[in-house]
């Protein structure tokens, strides 16, 4: 993503933010839509477009869970592990997905074929339909069981790649 593209994206949104530092986050999320994660060049472009130092931009990027500075899967599946979901079997959903994708039970991770990343999320605000899952930045869905979650990633794996990676 180039600095010019980022500037063009930010310009109509600039008025929404009283503190210009707040522009860094939307800029990062937009810069990420190209690859699904940020490269060094992407962060330098954000720095150029927002006028902050590259190291500051990176500090913002590393603060947030949904901004990635390392490659992740084509689709990112976030499993809510907060209290309501836990009470409704989120642990089983989480473990089922980790086992299916062959990733670590503690930290989640990306499947060997690079298609699916499984990660924990804190409360997604969908407690009435726990246990819930969010795919990329799509609308949260639930309630899920281990079986429905496995079916979901099968669907995702079969689906075409998204044009833009909003996460």
């Amino acid at each position: 993503m180039t600095a010019d593209q980022i500037r063009e994206y930010l310009e109509p949104r600039r008025h929404e933010f009283a503190d210009p530092r707040s522009l860094v986050l939307p800029a990062l999320k937009f810069a990420q839509t190209g690859r699904g994660y940020l490269t060094r060049e992407d962060m330098e472009a954000v720095a150029e477009a927002t006028g902050y130092s590259a190291s500051y931009v990176e500090s913002v990027a590393t603060f947030y869970d949904r901004v990635y500075t390392e490659p992740v899967g084509t689709r990112v599946v976030s499993v809510c592990v907060s209290m309501s979901c836990q009470l409704r079997g989120a642990d089983q959903v989480w473990e089922a997905l980790c086992d299916k994708e062959g990733v670590d039970h503690h930290h989640g991770g990306t499947s060997a074929d690079g298609r699916i990343t499984v990660q924990e999320a804190q409360c997604l605000g969908y407690c009435d339909r726990a246990a819930c899952i969010q795919v990329d930045a799509e609308e949260t869905q639930g309630p899920h069981t281990p079986d429905s979650a496995r079916a979901l990633v099968d669907e995702l794996r079969a689906a075409p790649d998204p044009d833009e990676y909003w996460r």
Binding site: M43, S53, A54, S55, S59, T62, F63
Partner: peptide, 19 residues
């Protein structure tokens, strides 16, 4: 010089430079 920052958060916070 705009080089040093704190990255990550909580217990993972660390002092570092860009990349």
């Amino acid at each position: 010089d705009g080089q040093l920052t704190m990255q990550e958060r909580g217990v993972q916070s660390q002092i570092t430079t860009f990349s």
